[in-house]
Design a binder for these strands. Structure first.
Ligand SMILES: NC(=O)c1ccc[n+]([C@@H]2O[C@H](COP(=O)([O-])OP(=O)(O)OC[C@H]3O[C@@H](n4cnc5c(N)ncnc54)[C@H](O)[C@@H]3O)[C@@H](O)[C@H]2O)c1
Ligand SMILES: NC(=O)c1ccc[n+]([C@@H]2O[C@H](COP(=O)([O-])OP(=O)(O)OC[C@H]3O[C@@H](n4cnc5c(N)ncnc54)[C@H](O)[C@@H]3O)[C@@H](O)[C@H]2O)c1
Lengths: 218, 218
DNA sequence: TCAATATCGATAAGTTATTATCGAATCCTT
DNA sequence: AAGGATTCGATAATAACTTATCGATATTGA
C-alpha cells in the first residue's frame, strides 16, 4: 500500500516473511501465477488474516478473488527483508558448527553468502571448505576492509566470543550473527543477533512436559 | 508465590529462563549465595522488572534487600523448564549439522542427552560419534520403545523431513525438534519446535539495513 | 536505636500483537 | 446478465506482553 518501507515492520512479521517467501517461491517454480493468503496460511499453519496483515507491510497490493501476484510478491518480500542483494559475510570459527554453516547451501536463499572463513587453528587455516578459503584470524581486519564486508558470523567457543566480536567491530563489521551462548558487548551502532538453541529447546521441553501433564493430570 | 506450576508460564518468559539459569549457575559456581534481579538484568541486558516478573513464575520468593537465594533459584528454573531430569533424545540425520549437534557438549546443561543417532547412509551407520552409536533408521522404532525415548531431533534434508517425522510419531515420540525448514504435519498431541535459522537471519538483515538507512537517511 | 537504602512484589498503565468482523471488489457460474 | 462466492483491506476488539510506579520489608550503617 505505502510506497516504500516508510513505517517500520514489526519483528514478528519479519520473522514470518521467510516462511512466506519459501512457499511463494515454490509456487512460482510450480508455474502458478496467483496465491491467496488463505492458501499461504493453510500451508504454513497460520490464520489467513495474519498473513494478510503481514503482506500489507510488503507494499504489494492484492487482488480480490485472486490473491497476490507471485511475480510481484516474491521480490517484495526479499526487498523487505533486505535480501534483494546478497550480503557478503565472514565466518569466524570453523569447528563443527562452523563447518556445518559453511557447507549449508540454504543461505543463498536467505540473501547471504559466506565469502571467507577464519580460525585460529593453524591446522585448518590455509585450506578451504565449500568454496570458502579459511584464513588465520589475524587477516580478518584487512580483508574486511578490502572486501567491504559488513556481516560477521561467530561460531567460536563462548569464552572467546567477546574477543572475536571486538575484532569484528574494529574491522568495521556492522552486524553480527552470534552462535555462542553469550551476551556480546558492542557499540550501539552494531546489530547483534544471538542464535541460542537453548531458547528453542526451553520452549520444547516446557510444552512437552505441559502436554504430558494435561494428558495425565495426576 | 504459588505452590507449583499451576498457571501457565508465558513463552517469552520460558525463552528467557535459560539465560537466567546460565548466569545463576555461574554465580553459584563462583560461590555466591544471593543474586538480585538488578544484577541479573544488568548481566544479560534486560530491565530488572522483567527479570523480577519472570522469576515470579518460577515459584521461588525473593528476599528484600538481598535478592534470591541461588541454591533455590537454580533448581526452580530447571524444574520450570522441565530440565530437572535429563530427557533422552534420538537424533535423526548425521550430516554436517547432525554431527555438530552430536558433538555439542552444551545440551547437558539443557536437560537433554542424545542417546542414539540414526541415518540411512550405510557408510555412517554402525559406527559411533561422540559417545553415541549410529544406527540405521529402520532400527528406530524398536529402540524408541525399548529405551522409552520421547524426544526426536530431525537433521535430515527437508524433502525427507516429513517422512522421518512420521517414523518418529509412529515410534511413540512425543516431541520433535526440527532443524529442517519445513512445516511438519503431526498429530495434535505431538509437540514440534522448528529451529529455523532464516528467522534470525531475517531479523538481522532487516535491522542491519534499517540501521544503515537511519545513519544515511537519504 | 533509627534513618537511609536496596530490593521484592503487586498493581496499573501503556504498548504491541493477534484475532474477529465486515464492506467492497472481482470473478465465476448459471 | 445477475447472483453467489471468494478474497482483500480496513477497522475494531481482544489478548499478551512490557514497562512504570509504589508501598512493604529487611538490612545496613550511623
Ligand atoms: N556444535 C553445535 O551444535 C552448537 C550448537 C549451538 C551452539 N554452539 C556454539 O557454537 C560455538 C562453536 O561450537 P562448535 O561446536 O563448533 O565448537 P568447536 O570447538 O568445534 O569449534 C570452535 C572453533 O573455533 C576456533 N577458534 C577458537 N578460538 C578462536 C579464536 N579466538 N579465533 C578464531 N577461531 C577460534 C577453533 O579453532 C575451532 O575451530 C560455541 O560457542 C558453541 O557453544 C554449537
Ligand atoms: N548445515 C547447516 O548449517 C544447516 C543449517 C540450518 C538448517 N539445516 C537443515 O538441517 C538439515 C540437515 O542439514 P545438513 O547440512 O546436515 O545436511 P546433510 O546433507 O549434511 O546431512 C543430511 C543427513 O541426513 C541423512 N538422511 C537423508 N535421508 C535420510 C532418511 N530418510 N533417514 C535418515 N537419515 C537420512 C543423510 O544420510 C545425511 O547424513 C537440512 O534440512 C538443512 O536444511 C542445516
Amino acid at each position: 500500500m505505502n510506497n516504500d518501507a516508510m513505517q517500520p515492520i514489526p519483528l514478528p512479521t519479519i520473522r514470518r516473511f521467510p516462511e512466506y517467501l519459501r512457499f511463494v517461491e515454490d509456487k512460482r517454480l510450480a508455474g502458478e501465477e496467483w496465491i491467496s493468503t488463505t492458501e499461504i496460511g493453510a500451508a504454513i499453519g497460520r490464520k489467513s488474516v495474519v498473513v494478510r496483515k503481514d503482506l500489507s507491510y510488503s507494499g504489494v497490493a492484492g487482488h480480490p478473488r485472486r490473491g497476490f501476484r507471485l511475480e510481484e510478491l516474491a521480490p517484495a518480500l526479499r526487498r523487505s527483508l533486505g535480501w534483494d542483494n546478497a550480503t557478503d559475510a565472514f565466518l569466524v570459527g570453523v569447528g563443527s558448527l562452523g563447518q556445518a554453516l559453511l557447507g549449508y547451501g540454504g543461505f543463498a536463499n536467505y540473501g547471504m553468502r559466506i565469502v571467507a572463513a577464519f580460525d585460529c587453528n593453524d591446522d585448518i587455516t590455509g585450506g578451504s571448505m565449500a568454496q570458502s578459503q579459511i584464513f588465520p584470524i589475524q587477516k580478518l581486519p584487512q580483508l574486511a576492509k578490502r572486501m567491504n564486508v559488513k556481516l560477521g558470523i561467530i561460531a567460536v567457543p563462548q569464552d572467546v566470543a567477546q574477543s572475536v566480536a571486538n575484532i569484528l567491530v574494529d574491522a568495521g563489521i556492522r552486524g553480527i550473527w552470534n552462535f555462542a551462548p553469550v551476551q556480546l558487548d558492542v557499540p550501539s551502532n552494531v546489530v547483534v543477533r544471538r542464535e541460542d538453541l537453548s531458547h528453542g529447546l526451553a520452549v520444547l521441553s516446557y510444552q512437552l512436559r505441559e502436554e504430558c501433564e494435561t494428558i495425565r493430570p495426576e
